Simulated assay, not measured.
Amino acid sequence: MSQRYPPAFDPRQIPVLPGAASDGLHAAPARRLTPEGLRTHFAHPPIWTPELVMERRFTDRAPAEAAVLLPLVQRDRLSLLLTQRTAHLSTHSGQIAFPGGKVDAEDRDATAAALREAEEETGLPPSHVEVIGTLPQYVTGTQFFITPVVALVRPGFTLQPNPDEVDDVFEVPLDFLMDPANHRRHGFEWGGELREWYSMPYQDGATERFIWGATAGMLRNLYRFLSA
């Protein structure tokens, strides 16, 4: 079977589907969007169900275990550290992503892989990182089985992005991302099926950070967890 990637498209131009992504939903409670609130919620998780688990497969690529770090920087307003991938990468090039990558045989577990990849990609030192939990595995259409590792990050670090993998590193307030009023649901038909995803566009000064696809899907799951 040959690989069947979707045609190239600008996700910003794909229509928003009818019905707001926030219908009947409220922002995650502010008390949970603090370091102590997050620690408590992960230490004593509620019964909940992730909204998004597996994207429609569109490649015959062999499945690969991967891990990403959701680094929440402890500023006056918790903020999520994100990267913009370089345009020449073989998968998800140019997209906004969490730092992370494949789990190597030398990695003790997904958490170790996420910390290693975050340091390799951005220079984020593990000494500034406090892992507080993980989210359910998320499977991309490109057959990456991703474990999202959630962590608090102590300020005072200096980043050194790897230019071969990362074009930019920036932060987005967590309360913005955890408010479904800022979530949009898109879809277009490809291969006789409707392919859908979320986006969470964030205006960062003069720059629009268009967060979408798997990154937005895992953030939607974090919202569901923190709202449960």
Rank of each mutant, 00 (worst) to 15 (best):
R184Y: 10
H183F: 09
R195I: 14
Y202D: 13
M200S: 10
H186C: 07
D168I: 01
D179W: 12
E193Y: 12
F210I: 02
D175W: 09
Y202N: 07
E189F: 00
Q160M: 03
P161N: 02
N182H: 15
Y202C: 03
V169R: 10
D204Y: 07
F176K: 08
A181L: 14
G205P: 09
L159S: 08
E171I: 00
D168W: 04
G213M: 05
D175R: 10
P180Y: 15
R220C: 08
L177I: 05
M178K: 15
P161R: 01
M178V: 02
D164E: 15
S199H: 03
L194H: 03
G205Y: 04
G217Q: 07
L222N: 06
G191P: 02
E165H: 11
A214E: 09
G192S: 07
R184M: 05
Q160W: 06
Y198H: 13
T215L: 05
D167S: 15
Y198D: 11
E171W: 04
P180A: 12
D167K: 01
H183D: 13
N182V: 08
D167F: 05
R209D: 07
T207A: 06
Y223Q: 09
H183Q: 12
L159W: 09
L219I: 14
P161F: 01
P163K: 01
V172G: 02
D164C: 08
F225H: 06
G205L: 03
T207C: 01
A206F: 08
A216W: 03
L174M: 13
G187E: 06
E165P: 00
Y223W: 15
R220Q: 04
R185S: 05
V166N: 05
N162P: 12
A216D: 09
D164W: 03
W212S: 14
V166H: 04
D168P: 01
R184H: 12
N162D: 15
M178A: 11
F225Y: 14
L219R: 06
P163N: 04
R184D: 11
F176A: 03
W197V: 01
W190L: 01
L194W: 04
P161C: 01
G192Y: 10
F225N: 07
D175N: 15
